[in-house]
Amino acid sequence: MDTDAALAALSALAHPTRLDAFRRLVRAEPAGLSTGQLVAASGLGQSTLSSHLAVLVAAGLVTPEKRGRQMIQRADIERLRALMLFLARDCCNGSADLCEPLIADLACC
């Protein structure tokens, strides 16, 4: 991931509604959630949530899939992985032992 892509992803996640929706989608992988499920969980109107989803889609963090009459939203886990690696790549000046607690925290959850 390059700097521009990382900034686009971070910018998209820098809003409480979008961050909440993305985290819900990450938890729902690999099945994803319908747009209706996300609307119900958010308490927002369909058009408002759709605008937020469009920002996440433009940043490459969410992929919509048409399934029958429903639009299923899925988190792009590979894009999340790339963002996390971008942020942690130079962690602790190459001292892997200093990053072990971070890795352990991710493994436990």
Rank of each mutant, 00 (worst) to 15 (best):
F86K: 00
V26I: 15
R18K: 05
L87H: 05
L87N: 02
L33P: 01
A59G: 06
S34V: 07
K66P: 10
L10G: 13
E29K: 12
R89D: 13
S50T: 14
A9Y: 00
G60H: 04
D76P: 07
A41H: 00
V57F: 04
A58F: 07
R69W: 12
L56T: 03
P16W: 02
L44G: 05
C92N: 11
F86Y: 10
I77P: 03
L80K: 08
L38Y: 04
A58H: 12
Q70V: 12
H52T: 04
P30R: 08
Q46L: 14
T35N: 09
R23Q: 14
V39D: 00
G36H: 11
G68W: 00
Q70M: 11
V62L: 01
A8R: 14
D20W: 10
H15R: 13
A28I: 10
D76W: 08
A14C: 08
T63M: 11
L49A: 08
D20I: 09
P16H: 07
N93V: 13
I77N: 07
A40V: 14
A54Y: 00
D76Q: 12
L19F: 12
G94C: 05
L44W: 01
A88Y: 11
G32S: 05
A75C: 06
S11H: 13
A8C: 09
A59R: 01
A40G: 09
E78L: 15
E65M: 09
S47A: 15
R69Q: 12
G68A: 01
T35I: 12
K66F: 04
L13F: 03
N93R: 14
M84K: 13
R69D: 12
R81K: 14
S95F: 13
G43M: 05
A88T: 15
G94K: 00
A75V: 03
L87K: 02
G45K: 08
L87T: 08
Q70T: 12
T17I: 15
A31Q: 15
R18E: 06
F86D: 05
A59Y: 02
R69Y: 11
A31Y: 10
C92E: 12
R24F: 08
V62D: 05
A12Q: 00
A41T: 04
G32A: 05
Q46R: 14
A96K: 07
A41C: 09
Q70L: 13
L83C: 06
S34R: 10
Q37C: 06
A31D: 15
C92Y: 08
A96Q: 10
S42V: 02
L49T: 03
R67H: 14
A40I: 11
A75D: 03
V57P: 03
M84D: 12
G94M: 01
F86S: 04
L44T: 05
G68L: 02
N93E: 15
L44S: 09
R18G: 04
F22T: 07
R23H: 11
L49W: 01
R24H: 11
M84L: 14
T63F: 07
L33C: 08
D20P: 06
R18I: 10
A12C: 00
T35P: 02
V55N: 05
L13H: 06
R23P: 09
S50M: 10
A14L: 07
A40K: 12
R79A: 13
L38R: 03
V55S: 08
L85S: 09
